[in-house]
Amino acid sequence: MFFKKQKFALGLDIGSHSIKVAEITDSSHGLQLKNFGIAAVPAQAIVEGVVKERAQVADIIAALVNNLKITGKRTAASIAGYSVIIKKINMPLMSDKELEDNIAVEAAQYIPFDINDVYIDFQILGASVEKKDRMDVMLVAAKRETIDEYSELIRDANLVPTIIDVDPFALENAYEANYDTENHNIALVDIGASKININILINGVSTFTRDASFGGDQITDQIRSKFDLPYDQAEILKISGNVNGDKRPILEEIFSSTCSLWTMEIRRAIDFYYANYPDHSLAKIVLSGGSAKIAGLSDILRLETDIPVEIFDPFARIDVDPDRFDPEYIRQVGPQAAIAIGLALRSVET
């Protein structure tokens, strides 16, 4: 008997600082990286998830896809921020069909938008621990305007929008493909240019999510201000940390104060999680995103939370051909590739 290989979507992570594209295939060795690329996005072209310069961003995506010689069109992208509501809710036990018929009415209680202005999706997590006649459901609502705008952007780039996911679940998908998730609880923390996504998994099931409007741009903006540098040079200095003389203490203070602010926000989310799940201690915090490797962040976070911290490797169980991809480059870009890899692992119908 012959089995058709699973087809995966083209993973497209549209960030405010860069576009990431990933393509995964099934091979005889398992999952294999076929393509990966990053392209910079001009400042202010995308602001807090809102695409301000659609034609320009579409051209960047199309050029990146063409340069990588990607032929697949079916694309999975994701959104985050205040246009998305993710909430775990408790409902009476019912079938998928019954839930589908009733979810809009139930969702209206939790969504701060007009129910007609959102797309709604859900996943049944299982029977409630406290009451066996009820069940836990993960509710996701996204503003139609945002979904439609991202879909049009993808079409403008000559691709086909097939899946519009949300960042925390794309990150979870990448984690599940590369790590064991059973019998321990973890916090996935993605720190991008303008946002922090927190997704806490209990035994592999997403249980708590939170977004915060913080990110690497805070450091870049402070470097620009303190050292009177243009944006591009401030970004380079942020990444390299290369500064001498009396400027080094200034840079170190920027890193330290910003990492402390991020840590405070992450710790606040973890404290809220513990208030609701006191018996489910976290085994570790896993950092991803372009700002995950900011100097000192892991150490501060570990000290403040008393939880082990590690950097996400989205290629841990994905075969990467060293003749096609420089191993050092893959190691360096790993944390910021996580969402794109998670999206590239979404299956699409053939």
Results as ranks from 00 to 15, higher is better:
residue 57 V to D: 13
residue 334 G to D: 10
residue 21 V to Q: 06
residue 264 M to H: 11
residue 31 L to R: 01
residue 16 S to C: 08
residue 203 N to A: 10
residue 167 D to W: 00
residue 187 A to N: 04
residue 90 N to I: 11
residue 154 I to D: 00
residue 68 L to H: 00
residue 122 F to Y: 04
residue 45 A to W: 03
residue 143 K to A: 07
residue 65 V to A: 10
residue 188 L to F: 07
residue 163 I to G: 02
residue 119 Y to E: 08
residue 65 V to N: 09
residue 194 S to F: 09
residue 2 F to I: 01
residue 20 K to H: 08
residue 286 V to N: 05
residue 31 L to H: 06
residue 162 T to L: 11
residue 207 T to Y: 10
residue 19 I to S: 02
residue 224 R to F: 08
residue 30 G to F: 08
residue 217 D to Y: 04
residue 212 A to L: 11
residue 216 G to M: 10
residue 244 N to Q: 15
residue 350 T to F: 14
residue 293 K to C: 06
residue 277 Y to C: 05
residue 118 V to S: 01
residue 336 Q to T: 00
residue 66 N to E: 14
residue 202 I to A: 05
residue 176 E to D: 11
residue 261 L to T: 14
residue 137 V to T: 01
residue 131 K to A: 12
residue 246 D to N: 14
residue 21 V to P: 05
residue 75 T to W: 14
residue 209 T to E: 09
residue 136 D to V: 01
residue 71 T to A: 12
residue 231 Y to C: 02
residue 304 E to N: 15
residue 29 H to P: 04
residue 157 A to V: 08
residue 242 N to C: 02
residue 243 V to L: 12
residue 296 G to K: 09
residue 136 D to I: 03
residue 299 D to A: 15
residue 267 R to W: 12
residue 165 D to Q: 00
residue 24 I to C: 06
residue 219 I to W: 01
residue 199 N to H: 09
residue 251 L to G: 01
residue 281 S to T: 15
residue 224 R to K: 14
residue 237 L to P: 00
residue 156 D to M: 04
residue 79 I to L: 15
residue 199 N to W: 11
residue 262 W to T: 07
residue 211 D to R: 07
residue 150 Y to F: 12
residue 202 I to T: 04
residue 201 L to G: 06
residue 32 Q to E: 12
residue 163 I to A: 01
residue 79 I to V: 15
residue 20 K to W: 03
residue 306 D to K: 09
residue 45 A to P: 04
residue 190 D to M: 07
residue 300 I to V: 13
residue 41 V to M: 07
residue 87 K to S: 05
residue 141 A to S: 07
residue 146 T to V: 12
residue 202 I to S: 07
residue 107 A to Y: 07
residue 65 V to C: 13
residue 100 E to I: 14
residue 293 K to Q: 09
residue 134 R to N: 13
residue 81 G to E: 01
residue 87 K to T: 06
residue 328 E to L: 09
residue 35 N to A: 09
residue 221 D to C: 08
residue 79 I to F: 13
residue 270 I to V: 12
residue 251 L to T: 02
residue 135 M to K: 08
residue 168 P to V: 06
residue 126 G to L: 04
residue 302 R to C: 14
residue 343 L to E: 03
residue 50 V to C: 10
residue 137 V to K: 02
residue 158 N to A: 11
residue 121 D to I: 12
residue 151 S to T: 11
residue 340 A to D: 01
residue 235 E to G: 02
residue 127 A to H: 14
residue 66 N to P: 04
residue 200 I to G: 02
residue 338 A to W: 00
residue 132 K to V: 01
residue 276 N to K: 15
residue 320 V to S: 13
residue 286 V to Q: 02
residue 7 K to A: 15
residue 121 D to M: 12
residue 203 N to S: 12
residue 283 A to I: 09
residue 325 F to N: 06
residue 314 P to S: 11
